[in-house]
Amino acid sequence: MGPSETGNGERRAWHRLTVAEQNALTTPGQQRIWQSGEFLAMQGSPPSSMFVIIRGWVKITATNYRGDNAPLAARGPGEIVGELAPISGLPRGATIQAMDEVCAWVITAERLLAVLSRNPRIAMELLRSLAFRLQQSDRLRLESGGTEFPQRLAALLLELALQYDPDWAAASEVVLHQTQEDLASFARVSRSTLIRGLDELKRIGVVKTARHRVTIIRPDILRDLAAGRPAP
């Protein structure tokens, strides 16, 4: 019943749940499909449901009081998203948008709260994931505030790699499903500055780029750059 495109990611709450616990959340339940660009939920909307991503990727963004829209995260198969609003009962604090075709379980707030009241272990696993994501968010803010852009970009890409694949092994490739605009927003630079930084990383064989994605192919060199050491 669970998402099938990933392994049992230890840091993804859904994969830490037993089959019985997954069924408790999704039975009765509904699967829906969204096309690229469609919204699963909007910032400020009622806290009516949460989502378990089965297939595809979503982008989570938020708009501040000045009207600036910024990316917060991208989540893929095996991730639970939108759970904070139903738990808090407050309007949604972020927008969830499909980056490609997305299939997800839609779990109503009523169902979620009823299950959590009877299953404290499920509540604990959601709390563990929230704590991990808070750490990720803090690290992204820290790395995006450095002074030297090449070092800052390398560190930012490493932190995003852990966001996309929480169980990422540092020796393997990882694909970031991000537009250049989103990466520039994360890095707090213009798109042209970001492109120059990515071009330099491509030149030394650290990353490769395609439409809406950056693939880290030499994480060892990227880690050296993030630490302020020159590339070999």
Score class of each variant (00 low, 15 high):
residue 132 F to H: 05
residue 209 T to C: 03
residue 27 T to S: 13
residue 21 E to W: 05
residue 36 S to I: 06
residue 34 W to E: 02
residue 137 S to G: 12
residue 5 E to A: 12
residue 18 T to R: 10
residue 182 D to Y: 00
residue 61 T to P: 03
residue 94 A to H: 07
residue 61 T to G: 07
residue 45 S to M: 15
residue 228 G to V: 04
residue 5 E to P: 03
residue 203 R to V: 00
residue 63 T to E: 15
residue 131 A to Y: 06
residue 76 G to E: 06
residue 77 P to M: 04
residue 26 T to P: 08
residue 83 E to R: 04
residue 219 P to N: 11
residue 41 A to R: 09
residue 209 T to M: 13
residue 102 V to I: 10
residue 91 P to V: 02
residue 229 R to H: 05
residue 73 A to L: 08
residue 13 A to Y: 00
residue 185 S to D: 09
residue 132 F to D: 08
residue 214 V to C: 03
residue 31 Q to F: 11
residue 102 V to L: 15
residue 143 E to H: 06
residue 58 V to A: 03
residue 107 I to D: 02
residue 198 L to C: 10
residue 220 D to S: 13
residue 184 A to W: 08
residue 56 G to P: 07
residue 141 R to V: 11
residue 98 A to H: 07
residue 91 P to W: 12
residue 57 W to T: 04
residue 89 G to A: 14
residue 63 T to L: 08
residue 231 A to T: 02
residue 179 T to G: 01
residue 220 D to L: 11
residue 41 A to Y: 07
residue 200 E to W: 08
residue 160 L to S: 01
residue 123 A to I: 07
residue 19 V to P: 03
residue 158 L to M: 11
residue 14 W to F: 00
residue 22 Q to N: 09
residue 33 I to S: 14
residue 57 W to D: 00
residue 154 A to I: 01
residue 183 L to A: 01
residue 179 T to H: 09
residue 33 I to G: 11
residue 40 L to R: 07
residue 189 V to E: 02
residue 189 V to K: 01
residue 179 T to E: 04
residue 91 P to Q: 11
residue 58 V to Q: 01
residue 119 N to D: 13
residue 32 R to K: 14
residue 155 A to W: 11
residue 193 T to R: 10
residue 141 R to H: 11
residue 70 A to P: 10
residue 25 L to Y: 11
residue 23 N to P: 01
residue 139 R to V: 14
residue 107 I to L: 08
residue 53 I to F: 10
residue 102 V to T: 04
residue 54 I to C: 11
residue 72 L to P: 02
residue 211 R to A: 07
residue 12 R to A: 09
residue 110 E to Q: 09
residue 214 V to F: 00
residue 227 A to R: 10
residue 164 Y to E: 12
residue 170 A to I: 15
residue 30 Q to D: 13
residue 129 S to M: 14
residue 23 N to M: 05
residue 138 D to L: 01
